Computed example of a mutant assay.
Amino acid sequence: MKFTDYCLSSEGTDVIQATSSDEKYPPENITDGKSETFWTTTGMFPQEFIICFHKCVTISKLTIQCYCVQTLRIEKSVSKDPVDFEECIEKELQHKEGELQTEEFSFPEIQATYLRFIILSGYDAFVSVHRVIAEGITQDSENQT
């Protein structure tokens, strides 16, 4: 049994949609595994991004590193396409000026092919998402439904 971070581009994970994009801070920065790089929004809320795992994964813990995010909703889908999302959690995050927000969400294991992160509000006009970590146990079987 081995824990894996599924939210890494090296694991084949992609950010397939983001509501805003700045060429200096692209959405792909969320899955590069570094806290120093980030995706930034370009004002107005809600903002969202969708992470695609390219296979169904089982997640036991999600961690997001972000800045100035006030209200966050996380949804999941097990569909072949990014549709039919179900809400996992919605939470108001605490903000400390000048500090990265690190928020951990533990679940009874959830299965997902896609995760949608919706930033409903921020403490500033611009917010940033530095990293998403989706921890799960690697399954030997690829034939999950």
Rank of each mutant, 00 (worst) to 15 (best):
Lys2Gln: 06
Lys2Glu: 05
Tyr6Cys: 02
Cys7Arg: 01
Cys7Met: 01
Ser9Leu: 12
Ser10Ala: 12
Ser10His: 10
Glu11Trp: 07
Asp14Trp: 12
Val15Arg: 12
Ser20Lys: 07
Ser20Tyr: 09
Ser21Met: 05
Pro27Cys: 01
Asn29Lys: 05
Asn29Thr: 00
Ile30Val: 00
Thr31Val: 00
Lys34Ala: 01
Ser35Asn: 04
Thr37Ala: 06
Phe38Thr: 02
Trp39Ser: 05
Thr41Cys: 04
Thr41Lys: 07
Thr42Ala: 13
Gly43Val: 03
Gly43Ser: 14
Met44Lys: 15
Gln47Ala: 04
Ile50Lys: 14
Ile51Asp: 06
Cys52Gln: 08
Cys56Asn: 05
Cys56Lys: 11
Val57Ala: 05
Val57Asn: 06
Ser60Phe: 06
Thr63Ile: 02
Thr63Asp: 07
Gln65Met: 10
Cys66Trp: 09
Glu75Leu: 14
Lys76Trp: 04
Ser77Asp: 04
Ser79Pro: 05
Ser79Cys: 11
Val83Thr: 13
Asp84Phe: 15
Phe85Lys: 07
Cys88Phe: 12
Ile89Cys: 06
Leu93Phe: 11
Gly98Arg: 05
Leu100Lys: 08
Glu104Ile: 00
Glu104Pro: 01
Glu104Met: 01
Glu104Ser: 05
Ile110Glu: 07
Thr113Cys: 15
Tyr114Asp: 06
Tyr114Glu: 05
Arg116Met: 13
Arg116Phe: 11
Leu120Gln: 13
Val127Gly: 14
Val127Asp: 11
Ile133Phe: 06
Ala134Arg: 03
Glu135Met: 07
Ile137Glu: 14
Ser141Glu: 14
Ser141Met: 13
Asn143Thr: 04
Thr145Met: 10
Thr145Val: 01
